[in-house]
Design a protein around this nucleic acid. Structure first.
Lengths: 111, 111
DNA sequence: CATTATACTGTGTATCACACAGTATTGTCA
DNA sequence: TGACAATACTGTGTGATACACAGTATAATG
């Protein structure tokens, strides 16, 4: 993975760009249930590449912070930990969204 | 400073959102010369609050990385360190911009 | 002449994305 | 059937970095 053949300077900057956004993306997508692996694929589909080593710890962290809920379930075959946004998360999401669009607008004024 | 009376959880998340963007904003604004203090005000005008403790180290770091150039000058009264984008920075900026809009678009699909 | 605004230099800390390593199960297809 | 890829997770370590906090010093303003 890791978008090859690209200037490593750019790579680092882009990584920092993406950084904060990942949490917002996850909260936005977890109105419906997802487990880690499916979430990675979902985000990739929408154009956001995120590593396993990023997603899994992040999901646990967000659950610790009370923004997500999870339960460990054995459907189908493999056991999977399913995550959904929590009430607290639902409460914060719109505010985060509006902060995001404020940021996007500020950037539009600057670029 | 520090946008008062706001949920500290949100504050932390917004901070992470803003994080990577600051570099992009600075590069975008330094087509014209600025010194640290004036840059802070310029960004604030456009809607991006950044602390002194963020800007000054960041400017030095970006110069170390070769994205900015500076010279120390005594105009008017006080001595000031003036920064401009470097050739290298000019080279990377468009690529960073397009990564940014890709990110914005991905977010639009998700929110 | 005291206070505020200007303008900078540090040091320290917490957060966090990702690298890397490891485990185990379930297809798939030759 | 047996190797290999895909699926699905846990865990540790590292590097980057925004901001807090502290300090210095000059200029403008009342």
């Amino acid at each position: 993975m890791n978008t090859p053949n690209r200037d490593p300077d750019i790579e680092k900057l882009v990584l920092e760009l993406r950084r904060g956004v990942i949490t917002l993306a996850i909260l936005g997508q977890l109105s419906g249930e997802q487990y880690g692996y499916s979430l990675i694929q979902l985000l990739a589909e929408k154009g956001l590449q995120v590593e396993q080593g990023t997603i899994y710890p992040l999901l646990r962290r967000l659950e610790d912070q009370g923004l997500l809920q999870s339960d460990w379930r054995i459907e189908d075959s493999r056991p999977r930990r399913y995550y959904v946004i929590s009430p607290r998360g639902k409460e914060l999401l719109p505010e985060l969204k509006s902060e995001w669009s404020a940021l996007v607008q500020a950037m539009e004024r600057m670029l």
